[in-house]
């Protein structure tokens, strides 16, 4: 075994272990903030897997998109809401958990059987594709053009939807009437005051 092979084997083991442990942590931990941070760990471990598969561009894109954008957005959502409310224990909660575990195990078994029974055509040796970014670009603009463009349309739809949802009319009718004691408040979310409210004078 050469040094490179040994390094790859050890990295593969470590990455597998971190992926599985972090993914279990995401699902099983009670604290949602821990789950969000561990999700970042899962994404980074999977980027490491891509690196082992010689897909360096995909690995960097995985970090940029999933860790740098998706995970940060999830964290933002959690921290801006920041409502620490102990959830009331459900009646017969174990039935739900049992059913969930059953369904998940069934899915896992199904995927496992499929991946073992499929006759994968394994190349004896990984071909050297050279500049991965170049090859990806060539494929995106030739044989994968339609999926690529469809994905960008999907992103556009999501963006327009987000803008429509986020746009709110801030000026209420009392502002038009010229009311001096106007308080700008978002209609949907009444805020809980942090400190006791000051006595309103005048």
């Amino acid at each position: 075994m050469t040094l490179a092979e040994g390094t790859q084997l050890v990295s593969f083991g470590v990455l597998t272990l971190t992926t599985i442990v972090a993914a279990l942590g995401v699902v099983l931990l009670e604290n949602i903030v821990y789950s969000a941070f561990l999700l970042g760990g899962v994404f980074i471990s999977i980027a490491g897997m891509y690196l082992l598969l010689n897909a360096d561009f995909v690995a960097a894109a995985q970090i940029l998109v999933y860790v740098g954008a998706v995970n940060v957005l999830i964290l933002f959502a959690i921290m801006l809401v920041n409502k620490r409310e102990p959830l009331a224990p459900l009646k017969n909660g174990w039935i739900r958990r049992g059913l969930t575990a059953l369904v998940c195990f069934g899915l896992f078994a199904l995927l496992g059987v499929v991946s073992i029974s499929t006759p994968w055509s394994v190349l004896p040796e990984a071909p050297n594709v050279g500049d991965t970014a170049l090859r990806l670009g060539q494929h995106f603009f030739s044989d994968f053009l339609l999926p690529f463009e469809l994905a960008s349309v999907l992103l556009l739809i999501a963006m327009i939807g987000a803008i429509v949802l986020a746009r709110r009319e801030f000026v209420t009718s009392s502002a038009v009437d010229g009311d001096d004691n106007l308080i700008f408040r978002l209609p949907e979310r009444p805020r809980e005051p942090i400190a006791p409210e000051p006595v309103e004078s005048k």
Partner: peptide, 21 residues
Amino acid sequence: LGIGAFLWISLSSITPIGLLM
């Protein structure tokens, strides 16, 4: 690296996670 400049950009996107943490 073949992805040099892109590596820098994607690595610098990890930093906000540490700051939030």
